[in-house]
């Protein structure tokens, strides 16, 4: 194991780690917000809009993330959308993630018994408060596990951003490997690192799940 290599490339790798985390957090938080808006529009918006959303969801889920990234990053400038690699990475994450998040939220909405919402309307609750007080707190129970699952998938998708020269962790590792002709150690270390990141995300997800289901455990 050539440890001095990791010392020499330490700052670059650390910087790459920062970019990975930045793209992951910004992209998935943006994806959750857009996905939630899509799910709400789908439920409460006009009927025609839900068709548009359906087509959007199907297109994004039916095409590879890499192609979406290429269309945005290489095709964008032709329609006046010039993005830096990191901006393109985050934007494509939001575009790619939002339909999946929208579907997760939709399943959450459907899990709330209709009677509760009708009852809330009968006692005169406004729609926004029904969403905030009745639907959301209960919805967290069935959606936490799929949300964690998708956060984990997005953690791993950050590696693909290296293809459009986003200076994230894999990109820095590839640079290091190419400059020093060592491949086994850097890539093995990188694999272990991603693995650790996924395990930590899964662990946080399990903790959140415990917290949102605590009212069900008390017997």
């Amino acid at each position: 194991m050539e440890t001095e290599l990791f010392v020499r490339y330490g700052p670059a790798l650390l910087y790459g780690f920062g970019i990975t985390i930045l793209c992951w957090l910004a992209g998935s938080i943006g994806g959750v917000i857009v996905g939630f808006i899509l799910a709400c529009l789908n439920r409460w918006g006009p009927h025609a809009l839900s068709w548009v959303i359906y087509v959007y969801v199907e297109i994004i889920r039916g095409t590879p993330f890499m192609i979406q990234l290429f269309i945005l990053y290489y095709g964008g400038p032709y329609i006046g959308l010039v993005l830096s690699p990191v901006q393109a990475g985050i934007t494509s994450f939001v575009v790619y993630g939002s339909p999946y998040f929208a579907e997760i939220f939709r399943s959450g909405f459907n899990a709330i018994p209709k009677g509760q919402i009708e009852a809330a309307r009968c006692v005169g609750m406004p729609e926004t408060r029904i969403l905030w007080r009745i639907i959301l707190p209960q919805m967290l129970v069935p959606i936490t596990a799929p949300l964690t699952n998708f956060f984990i998938i997005l953690t791993k998708e950050t590696a693909i951003l290296s293809v459009v020269t986003v200076p994230e962790l894999l990109f820095q590792t590839q640079t290091m490997a190419a400059e020093t002709f060592t491949f086994v150690e850097p890539f093995l270390a990188l694999s272990l690192f991603y693995w650790l990141m996924v395990l930590v995300t899964g662990w946080i997800g399990a903790k959140v799940e415990q917290r949102v289901t605590r009212h069900l455990k008390r017997a």
Partner: peptide
């Protein structure tokens, strides 16, 4: 299962293609 689900496929692919020849 944990390892192969926890590492990005792109990294696995690079590992298979670039690192396996060294072993």
């Amino acid at each position: 299962i944990s390892f192969f689900r926890g590492v990005p496929l792109l990294v696995q692919l690079l590992l298979f293609y670039y690192a396996l020849p060294y072993v």
